[in-house]
Every structure is written in C-alpha cells, then in structure tokens.
Amino acid sequence: MFAEFLQFLFSGITVGAIYALVGLGFTIIYNASHIINFAQGEFVMLGAMSAVFFVSVGMPMPVAMLLAIIITIFIGLALVKLAIEPARNASIVTLIIITIGASIFLRGAAQVLWGRNFHSLAPISGNDPIMIGGAAVLPQSLWILGSAMLIVMALRYFFDRTLIGKAIVASAHNPLAARLAGINARFVLLLSFGLSAMLGAVAGFLIAPISLAYPSVGIMLGLKGFCAAVLGGLGNPMGAVLGGLIVGISEAMTAGYISSAYKDAVAFIIILGVLFFRPSGLFGIRGTERV
C-alpha cells in the first residue's frame, strides 16, 4: 500500500522535475520579454533528438549531451535573431504567435531530418532499479532529480548574485530603467532564450530514456511545463519549480489510483482551476504591476 504510494510519488517527482525545468524556461523568457515561448517544448525535443543522433553516430554520452545543449542553444539564439528581432516592434501577442509558428517549423524540420520514428536513448547509469521503501526507483530518476536541483541552484546563484543575472531581473521589473542603466535589451533577450534553450535541452536528454525521443515529444512536455509556470505564478522561478512538482505528482497519482487514461488531463484541469480561482498562480503577485 505504502510502497505503491511511494512508487507513484517517485515517478511523479521525476517527471515533475522535468516539468519544472521546462517551466523555468518559460519563466526566464517571460521575465525578460513578457513573451510566452511556445517553442519551449521544441527545445526539449531538440535536446532529446540531437542527443539520440550523436549517440547513434558513435559519440560517447557526455559528448552527445554537450553537443545537444550547444545545438539547442544555437537554435534558440537563431529563433531570436531570425524570427523575434525582425518583428521587434510588434505586439507581444504577435511575438507569441511567432513562437508557435517556430515550434511547428522545428517539429517539421525534425521529422524531415530524423523521421517520425520513436528512438530510445540509453539511461546514464543502467536500468537496474534501486529499491527505496519497497518502491523501485530507476537510476535515471535520480539523475533527473540531481541535475534539476543543481540547475535550480545554479540559476538562483546566477539571478541573485551575478551582475548580469541581476540585470535580467532588473529588466523584468522595469524595462525603461534597465535601458537607462545601459542594459542592452537585445542582449537580455538573447541570453534568456539561450538559457531557456539550455534548460530545455537538458530536460530533453534526461527524460528521453524514460519517455523515448520523437519529433512531437515536446508538445505535451511543453504544455505541461507551461501549466507548471502558470500554476506557480508566471514569472516566479521558484513557483515554476513547485508548480512542476505539483503537476508531476498529481499526474502520477491520477495515473496510479484512477486511470492512466486521465493522466494527461490532470495538468489541464489544474490550469483551468488556477485560471478560474487564482489567475495570478499560487505564488504570483496578485494583479499586474504597472508603473
């Protein structure tokens, strides 16, 4: 009984950590530009697919991961340069629609390049489960949790302690004052897309051994990461992390105790609930700040 619960909890936390990373990606870009980047899920897909590709051409896993990150960051920056910047003066809604277009393009390009098949990626340290309190935990889950925690701590350090990180936060709070302090808004935008692409890529190759890798793997992961970010209060990084864990755990519990058929619905029921009852999210500031 308890072992069963523990089993669901572990799998919820594992997938929740992935949603948290995706949600953080949404949050960082939203804070820097108020754009909701619907290509975030495609960053996840690119991370997974390119890691699969590099392993399949014979590269060792760490190299494949590093290259997957580099390629995804490169595509994130290209997205800014080729699609967002040329439309710089357009409204936020237009820019959001551009990211939807970019996500469809990236998915299509991945299908052309790598085919529509499902690919597996070997887990980092084998498939032998570790027994904890009667629940079987895959080593990959521990890798995911450890990496997610490390990334969250590194991001906190970056935004709280470094001048460039603070400059991004400052740009979110007051874009005009940030520009008058000499912060280059285009640089902040590029940096935020680069960081989010990196988060997406890491989430992608970490989850691939569990979820498999295929060109449309990013759709659901992206949407659920978005749910996590909204649940936590869009713009609040720690909120996105908690939101991710809440979505992941609720999903695993629903799949375990009710039916796995309803698994995907959970995130969207949560998001509807948030929008009805607490539109600013669990940890968001009520209402919008306008000075």
Partner: peptide, 14 residues
C-alpha cells in the same frame, strides 16, 4: 523608476 522589489544596493549596482 525603481527596481522596486530589488534591494537598494542592487539598484545601485545595476
């Protein structure tokens, strides 16, 4: 045009 939630020192650093 403060960076209102940030500390006084961080405002100056920015």
């Amino acid at each position: 045009q403060m960076f209102a939630p940030m500390t006084v020192e961080d405002n100056l650093m920015i």
